[in-house]
């Protein structure tokens, strides 16, 4: 579905992403992990069109999307969330999702956009009441809205950016289950970028690990958790232990 080949991104003299290739199969959940500064957010932003790659190709369903504007990538069927939720405060919750439904798909009527919005809000468990304001939402609610906005664009591939930062344990579990549910019910393929490995390992099919802009490991959660290079990178953090133990 998605094939990334020899992707590079340089900022001045700094190489943030160096020769990374990977692919994503239809219907899978791919976890993208790595320590801070490992280049995972940079890859994410290139997939979403926020940055143009310095070199390399990104093919989605056979079409090249490297260097396209973000809104074009949304129209091609790739939705994204932001690490820190970015709701539109001047709009109601429903209007937030409806806006994404209207502009995120090509050739839709307002009615269809509103239907897509209601469906997306129901999916994530937010109110579809037109009067509900974003100010009524807490951290978990704003993350859900972020997800609903992405879903309202009717994506075939969802890019979820560190969706769980700032949540407590039960909220984290709920959110992880949500991504599983989105895949199961809507057949949406997911790339999930995350710091927190434990809960990620429970849901994803495959994991790709980055360090210093390079791919150091890729495979099933248990394979990756036992990879000496991954253990070396994550040494001293306890997240790897819980993740590996839970899965192995």
């Amino acid at each position: 579905m998605l094939a990334v080949e020899h992707l590079f991104k340089r900022f001045g003299g700094f190489t943030a992403v160096s020769d990374v290739s990977f692919h994503v199969e239809q219907g899978e959940i791919l976890g993208l992990i790595g320590p801070n500064g490992s280049g995972k957010s940079t890859i994410f932003n290139m997939l979403a069109g926020a940055f143009a790659p310095t070199a390399g190709s990104i093919r989605f369903e056979g079409r090249e999307l490297a260097g396209l504007m973000p809104h074009r990538i949304v129209h091609m069927g790739i939705g994204r969330t932001f690490q820190i939720p970015r709701p539109f405060r001047r709009l109601s919750i429903l209007e937030n999702a409806a806006l994404a439904g209207y502009y995120g798909q090509e050739h839709v009527t307002r009615t269809e956009a509103w239907e897509a919005a209601e469906e997306a809000l129901e999916m994530v468990g937010l109110p579809t009441d037109p009067r509900a304001e974003t100010s009524s939402l807490g951290a978990a609610g704003l993350k859900k809205l972020e997800l609903a906005k992405a879903l309202a664009t009717k994506p075939r591939l969802l890019l979820a950016d560190e969706s769980l930062g700032g949540l407590d344990d039960s909220e984290m579990d709920q959110a992880a289950d949500m991504l599983g549910k989105i895949r199961a019910e809507k057949g949406i393929t997911v790339i999930w970028v995350e710091h927190i490995m434990g809960v990620l390992m429970r849901v994803v099919d495959r994991v790709m690990v980055l360090d210093h802009g390079e791919k150091i490991s890729e495979g099933s959660p248990s394979e990756v958790a036992n990879d000496p290079r991954v253990i070396e990178v994550y040494l001293g953090t306890d997240t790897i232990d819980t993740g590996a133990a839970a899965d192995a």
Binding site: M69, P70, V74, F82, R90, L91, A98
Partner: peptide
């Protein structure tokens, strides 16, 4: 019009608006 919602969104956050599919 929907343009009003779109421009309200753009005036708040251009990146987030673009991620909603708006050609800012």
């Amino acid at each position: 019009s929907m343009v009003r919602h779109a421009l309200d969104a753009v005036s708040e956050d251009e990146d987030s608006a673009a991620a909603a599919g708006i050609n800012v």
